[in-house]
Amino acid sequence: MKVDSSYWKKLWILFFTFAKIAALVVGGGYAILPVVEETFAKKYKWLTSDELLDMMGLVQTIPGIIACNSAVYIGMKIAGIGGVLAAAFGVCLPSVVIILIIAAFFPHLNPSDPWLLGAFTGVRACITGLIILTALRMAGKVLKGWFAILIALGVFALVMAGISPVYAVLGAMPLGIVYACWKRAADKRIREAGGIQK
């Protein structure tokens, strides 16, 4: 297998971006989306917004840490198995190092220090803003047609009512297949009905 320098550069960017996300972002799975979108979709254009949404849905339905699942998805899409390992290593390294340092040197660290809590509230507030922006941008791209609007509202309502996101996403999958089959049949009918005029 021929491995050129652009491949290693991709691995480095994957590792570095996910390490940056893990080192800076407080608040779990969804919080990484704005940074992932900025880096991989806008800056390098290696992924589309549609692919990011696919990722968001899939990482919920397979087991494991959401941030790590996202790293695996993006790593695999961009650079195959090597990309998976680079991105996953990037996600884990900062957390492992930070926690080991805290556990080894500050066993009595007070997690209720007001300065520390203030800083983390600040980061969460910033991430809230970024997620709102990302959600609105994605809504503009995804909510085309009644089916998408119905599914988005339905999943939102179910999860708000306490249903696990896993079941909500799993439930949307067969509905998507039914819709796709129905759409294909409907399109075919339209084509056949007005085939010659087109």
Binding site: L53, G57, M138, I151, A168, G176
Partner: peptide, 12 residues
């Protein structure tokens, strides 16, 4: 086609 709007619902 099912997963994308579902993911958007989760995001909201």
């Amino acid at each position: 086609q099912g997963v994308r709007p579902a993911a958007l619902g989760l995001l909201f």
